[in-house]
Design a protein around this nucleic acid. Structure first.
Lengths: 90, 90
DNA sequence: TTGTGACTGCTAGTCCGTT
DNA sequence: TAACGGACTAGCAGTCACA
């Protein structure tokens, strides 16, 4: 049972970022290691980001956005979740 | 820094960020010191960001965006430049 | 009012592993 | 496949004196 994705605004930005990264990665159907490889980061570091315990830099955020195929700003906004783009089939 | 992974953009993202921060700050008509004070950062650190020699973290970027009164994503996009940024003058 | 070099403390980010 | 930990190095956060 996948935890219901809630959107908190006073929430820790690192956790929010982690959720977005996770969602986008799953959407691409790739593993943390695959993503880490594409971004040029360590696999454990990507894991930390998704868990919201890391505080990545501007450069890393940008590379992450690129690898995930989303606009950089997307990583800081979290527009997904409720009434999300159900992403038909695939 | 690990594998650079060229970002088609060309220009250094730090410089781009610096330009956006500078523009927004000027738009607010405040000094670097005023901004630094609002963000809770040192004056010289803000200076470094505007000059594009700093690589701030997620948390710093967010505080900066808040103080500048712009959505966080705005700092990573640079929609300014050409076509008028239709900012509904306050 | 801002730019700059140098500095210290801490963490961003890596690499090894186990669960 | 991913969470999690320890130990490590590179680099950022944050500050200062001075231009």
């Amino acid at each position: 049972m996948p935890a219901p994705i809630e959107i908190g605004q006073g929430e820790d930005p690192r956790v929010v970022l982690g959720r977005v990264v996770h969602q986008q990665r799953i959407r691409l159907g790739i593993s943390q290691e695959d993503l880490a490889d594409q971004v040029g980061l360590d696999r454990t570091y990507v894991s930390g980001i998704e868990r919201g315990i890391r505080n990545p830099t501007l450069l890393v955020l940008l590379r992450l956005a690129q690898a995930l195929g989303v606009p950089a700003g997307r990583l800081l906004e979290e527009k997904t979740g409720s009434a999300g783009p159900q992403l038909t089939s695939a």
